[in-house]
Design a protein around this nucleic acid. Structure first.
Length: 725
DNA sequence: CACCCTCGAGTTCA
DNA sequence: CTCGAGGGTG
């Protein structure tokens, strides 16, 4: 056991090391030399080696080099981060008021707050210490940015006060103030770099900086400092870059606006939760107000609509929340958003620009998409020159002609959208868009996939250069196998250089093959023989290697099978376990999987019936790409052998998440009730499956039973069987 | 068969 | 973010 003296010394070392690091990054004259710092750090490591119980999450040894939390690794939020439903005008707001009133029987006090235009994050504190800071991601899983958190002053490493809860998951917004953004931008221009477009993108980029890598690079350069003047120059440059990256983080702000999982704290209102978080040292907004009448809420919204630009940070609207937590629970959530809150969005900026042309693009599935080519114009913080028009039908519906002046906005302040023509500006020289009848890249005649489809497709999937290129690019995408170094340019180079014929050859690439292609090689540096592979080529090869071991569902997504994206691929992988089993399945067997109907079943079956598709799979197999998920030792899992049918909606779960909870425990999820069904879980609004279960005498449980099923298995669930079943 | 929800696909700018 | 389309429910 550690003595008091040792514990004290440990705390002292932690402080010394932390403050030394802070000074170092802020480029003040450090009080400690590198050698002194190293000695302190070594002492700390040694102390923790002897007394591992000291090495808590707040020790710098736990966070240096990403030892504890890997940058950008997925982090599952303890509680799902919902998005908010939007209201775009007073009528939609009134409609929401009405729904709330109907749900609760009266108009409840509402907490109104500004909707900061930043990026949502989730921070978890255990016993008052910051454990993780993660981006929102898809709401369930985000990216780990804990490593960067210590440089953001608004994200406390430790909560303060006497009533620190055992567990607190907070949600908030990370952003730059407009003033800080402008200052950062002018500094950026001063050193000859291009200006940033807007505060939100810059905040997102700043939060996702690889500080850890910069530190490693710098440490490596220092360790290798024998190189004389050139190495010195490199060190100076790396130091400057690191200092700049850290100072960006230091300018980020956090404002908390929500609570996820909690243990050990009791509050009864949203505003009470804010008050508590404020006492704990978390930054809360001083502009949130509780209002008890619809008129007051509307006045709050109108006030900030007028004074939108008087706030120190950008806002894109106002969030209105039912203040009382009990009433929030009473209203509940839909599958994607709480019913007890709404985001009132101020109208987005609309600009006019000239529609120069309508061109078409061919996607990886052969879909041909018209898009607008416009006179570049600045809108909502960035310059836009292109916008998708989805399909020919949509072009007609919008009524735009080539040569028109059009209204343009950014939907959700992100995606450019052509709204329609400015009719007053027409002078008769405009002409209608004519959808091509042949593929612009390979000349094959376009046709709809089936009768009545609005999309036109190029049927030449095997050799249309656009489709092959897009498929190769797609294999590398984050949604598929996530291969860094294989971008659009590399895909084109591989194909045009003849290094690969199509996606099938990707995993058979070798350094030798790449060397034959100019794009992937560079001139030899001094002391090197012959042309060398570029940094990017090496990255790509390494990541191709890593990609071979991704889960089966990602491999399925990478194959570009029609209708098979992430969730569907997961369903397939879960149900069949291997590529061979999927390839061998009949249409009926495929369609028996929950979430897969006739169309998808047929698409999958037909895909594997095509020779050259099977060749792609075989070549990937030859290249050692994963073709089966490791069979978990199914018999050991708590729900092994159980077949569960889930019907209706279960609070706290989506259809998929509930099913995943069951399959993770070795159980099978079926879509319809039969004699083989072990148990039916019926949530809210359960339908006809209930009757079927009664007819067959299959036990039925509700939410409580489902929770028991997950924690204690089938027997535990059976004690919750409903009366009359 | 009409409805709602979820998924797929293409997409913009840094 | 948007549209189109597939799947499941009532």
């Amino acid at each position: 056991m550690s003595t008091d003296v040792e514990r004290e010394r440990w705390a002292e070392l932690v402080d010394l090391v932390n403050s030394a690091r802070a000074e170092y990054y802020q480029k003040d004259a450090p009080r400690l030399s590198d050698a002194e710092y190293d000695a302190l750090y070594a002492e700390l490591v040694e102390l923790e080696r002897r007394h591992p119980e000291l090495a808590g999450g707040e020790s710098p040894t736990q966070t240096v080099g990403g030892a504890r939390s890997e940058m950008f690794e997925p982090v599952e939020h303890l509680q799902r981060m919902y998005s908010l439903d939007n209201a775009f005008d007073p009528t939609e707001l009134d409609a929401w008021f009405e729904r709330v009133r109907a749900g609760l029987g009266e108009f409840p006090p509402m907490l109104c707050e500004l909707k900061i235009d930043g990026l949502a994050v989730d921070a978890v504190y255990r016993d008052g210490a910051l454990v993780t800071l993660a981006t929102r991601g898809d709401g369930r899983v985000g990216e780990d940015v804990t490593y960067n958190a210590r440089f953001i002053p608004g994200v406390p490493q430790r909560l303060k006060g006497d009533d620190v809860p055992a567990l607190l998951e907070v949600r908030g917004e990370i952003y730059f103030t407009v003033a800080d953004f402008e200052r950062i931008n002018s500094e950026q221009l001063d050193i000859g770099l291009p200006a940033f477009a807007n505060p939100r993108n810059t905040a997102a980029g700043s939060l996702r900086q690889r500080i850890d890598r910069r530190e490693e690079d710098l440490a490596a350069a220092r360790a290798d400092a024998r190189g004389g003047a050139r190495a010195e120059g490199r060190i100076t440059r790396l130091e400057a870059e690191l200092a700049r990256a850290v100072s960006r983080l230091a300018n980020l702000r956090l404002t908390v606006h929500g609570v996820g999982a909690v243990e050990g704290a009791l509050v009864s209102t949203q505003s009470g939760a804010y008050e508590l978080m404020g006492r704990l040292g978390l930054p809360i907004s001083d502009r949130a107000r509780a209002h008890s009448t619809p008129d007051d809420v509307r006045a709050f919204i109108d006030h900030y609509g007028e004074h939108r630009h008087d706030v120190e940070h950008e806002i894109d609207g106002v969030v209105v929340k039912v203040d009382d937590l009990e009433r929030q629970r009473a209203l509940g959530e839909t599958s994607r958003a709480p019913r007890w809150a709404i985001a009132y969005k101020y109208p987005p900026e609309v600009v006019r620009t000239r529609l120069l042309d309508i061109a078409v693009n061919v996607g990886r599935t052969g879909r041909v998409t018209p898009f607008a080519v416009m006179e570049p114009v600045k809108v909502a913080g960035s310059t836009v020159a292109m916008a998708t028009l989805h399909n020919a039908h949509e072009v007609v519906r919008k009524g735009v002609l080539i040569g028109d002046v059009v209204f343009l906005r950014k939907a959700g302040d992100v995606i450019p959208e052509v709204l329609g023509p400015v009719l007053d500006e027409r002078d008769g020289t405009e002409r209608a868009f004519v959808m091509p009848t042949a593929c612009p890249e390979c000349g094959t005649g376009l046709r709809p996939e089936k009768e009545g489809d609005k999309d036109l497709r190029c049927p030449n999937s095997r050799s249309c250069p656009a489709q092959v290129r897009e498929r190769v690019f797609h294999v590398a995408s984050r949604a598929a196998l996530d291969i860094e170094g294989l971008g659009a340019k590399a895909a084109v180079a591989l194909l045009e250089g003849g290094v690969i014929e199509d996606e099938g050859d990707l995993f058979l690439l070798t350094p030798e093959l790449l060397s034959s292609c100019e794009f992937f090689t560079r001139e030899p540096a001094r002391g090197e023989e012959g042309r060398q592979l570029t940094e990017n080529a090496r990255t790509m090869l390494a990541n191709l290697e890593a990609a071979k071991d991704r889960p089966l569902w990602r491999v399925l997504v990478a194959l570009s099978i029609r209708h098979v994206g992430g969730p569907t691929a997961m369903d397939l992988a879960r149900a069949f376990g291997s590529m061979d089993a999927i390839a061998a399945a009949s249409i009926d067997e495929l369609a028996a999987v929950d979430g897969i109907g006739g169309t998808i079943a047929e698409a999958v079956h037909d895909w594997f019936a095509e020779d050259w598709h099977r060749d792609v799979v075989d070549k990937w197999r030859m290249g050692d790409v994963r073709m089966a998920d490791e069979a978990a030792d199914a018999a050991d899992l708590p729900l092994a052998g159980a077949t569960i049918v889930i019907t209706g909606s279960l609070e706290g779960f989506t259809r998929d998440s509930a099913a995943a909870e069951v399959t993770d425990r070795g159980g099978k999820v079926a879509s319809s009730v039969s004699k083989k069904t072990t148990l039916v879980v019926a949530g809210e609004n359960a339908g006809s499956k209930l009757d079927k279960a009664r007819d067959l005498g299959v036990p039925v449980v509700g939410l409580a039973g489902f929770v028991a099923l997950l924690s204690g298995g089938v027997d535990a669930a059976l004690s919750h069987v409903r009366e009359g079943a």
